[in-house]
Design a protein around this nucleic acid. Structure first.
Length: 427
RNA sequence: GUGGUCGUGGUGUAAAGGUUAACACUCCAGGUUGUGGCCCUGGCGAGUGCGGGUUCGAGUCCCGCCGAUCACCCCA
């Protein structure tokens, strides 16, 4: 038997209705907030992620699916969505278009991402993200807007258990000084750090801050904090954002040790975590990346965005939509009636009524009703010898247990007057 | 990439190294005429992830591989 690839999951019809519901809700909220969908390819030049996400990040160093191609150069399945969006923005010179010179460019995407990690609860090699980016505006107003959107989206899905963690990771002006200070501090405690962090000390000392190793955590507790090093712009940015969040009644927690694993973040960085998720507890991650455009060869363009893991989001959903439920099940007895049932089914569907028939030969009425019950059909139309003779069909309401005789020609009109459900329910 | 646990019909479980692998759910057929759910009766369905080994005998023990799961790591 040929099996699917490790970490790559089939999403079967039973779950797809939940996915569709989530995606539909996302599209509604993005529309409300003025975001348009963007669709970028699953494959990009490897270079984009090395320069965008950062050569030293785990994503680039060990998690990418790389496709070597001597003709086109190395390519990679996208491990995240922000760099590709920025690439498209720069490539199509959106920044130069009149309609976006001083209006933000707001886009969202929904699609698969790929990272070669060891699968675990909430972690897959192909996973799906709903993400959004706001390009071209530096003002913390857009930071707040993005967070408001997220809050509204999650509560709209009935998700209760989440916490917004916020930090500012500074900018190219103030981070270097902090970095030096942090290194100075870490140097004194180098032998107390885990192996991993000893390596990080040189390449990316900030990452030591959110190491989960207990002894590292202890060291970090006394470490200098970036907030004592913010330049006036960063300080101001964070202060304004906090004021806006408070004005919007968005609850958040400042986590001064929140550091994100992608190099492009600056100033605002945030995560939304849930205690119901286990080790992989982040359902959303995001922040501001004002340097990204230049990193990939574009003009200076400020930006902020987030990505949300759909699998993780779905795993903490308490409400789920029902799948397909037929309005009508047609039970037929005998060959002639079966033919009649098939034709009736077709007419019902033309009228927008969902209908199912029995496909097996010679099943008793009893078993056909059983099937109708299992399908949760609202009505059963019975066709047998009597009905064929009189031209009146028996219509049974399965929810009420009542039934009546309806003339064949009037059946559609009759059902249309019955407030039928059209096949499926969304919460 | 590292470590722990696990792998039995479609699903969930059971089977001290010893008959023909059991039970529940699902599914099918019945419980007298053409009426669902509940209940009752009967039936279909696996040879135990894959490959080796130990043993008279392996679902059970050992080794390897694969997969799942949880944690580390990292992140959504």
């Amino acid at each position: 038997m040929i099996k699917g690839i490790r970490g790559f999951k089939d999403i079967l019809p039973g779950e797809v209705s939940t996915w569709q519901w989530v995606e539909q809700k996302a599209r509604e909220i993005f529309h409300l907030y003025g975001y348009l969908e963007i669709r970028t390819p699953a494959l990009e030049k490897l270079e984009l992620f090395i320069r965008g996400v950062g050569a030293d990040t785990d994503i680039v160093q060990k998690e990418m699916y790389i496709i070597p191609d001597p003709r086109e150069g190395d390519m990679a399945l996208r491990p995240e969505g922000t760099a590709p969006v920025m690439r498209a923005y720069v490539e199509h010179q959106i920044y130069a278009r009149g309609d976006h010179k001083d209006r933000p460019y707001k886009v969202y995407y929904i699609g698969p991402m790929f990272r070669h990690e060891r699968p675990q609860a909430g972690r897959f090699r192909q996973f799906h993200q709903i993400g959004a980016e706001v390009l071209g505006v530096e003002d913390p107003l857009v930071d707040a807007e993005v967070l408001a959107l997220l809050r509204d989206f999650l509560t709209g899905l009935g998700v209760q258990d989440f916490q917004l963690q916020l930090n500012s990771v500074g900018c190219t002006n103030c981070r270097p000084a902090y970095r030096e200070e942090l290194k100075k501090y870490l140097k004194e405690h180098l032998n107390e750090l885990c192996e991993n962090c000893q390596a990080r000390y040189e390449r990316n000392p900030l990452r030591v801050l959110d190491c989960k190793n207990p002894t590292c955590r202890e060291v970090v507790l006394q470490a200098p904090l970036i907030r004592d090093f913010y330049c006036s712009i960063c300080k101001d940015h964070l202060q304004k954002l906090e004021n806006l969040l408070q004005a919007l009644n968005i609850t958040y927690l400042i986590n001064p040790r929140l550091v994100r694993g992608l190099d492009y973040y600056m100033r605002t960085a945030f995560e939304i975590v849930s205690s119901k998720l286990g080790a992989q507890n982040a359902i959303v991650g995001g922040g501001r990346y004002d340097g990204l455009s230049q990193d990939i060869g574009g003009p200076p363009v400020p930006g902020i965005g987030f990505a949300m893991g759909i699998e993780r989001l779905i795993s903490l959903l308490e409400i789920r939509p029902e799948g397909y439920i037929p309005d009508v099940f047609i039970a037929a007895l005998g060959k002639e009636a079966k033919q009649e049932a098939f034709l009736l089914q077709n007419q019902l569907r033309s009228a927008g009524i969902t209908a199912e028939i029995e496909y097996q030969e010679d099943r008793s009425l009893k078993s056909q009703l059983r099937t109708a019950d299992k399908l949760k059909a609202h009505f059963v139309i019975m066709i047998g010898e009597d009905e064929l003779k009189t031209g009146e069909l028996t219509v049974k309401n399965m929810r009420e247990g009542t039934q009546e005789q309806i003339k064949r020609e009037e059946i559609i009109q009759h059902l249309k007057g019955k407030k039928i459900t059209h096949g499926s329910f969304l919460p």
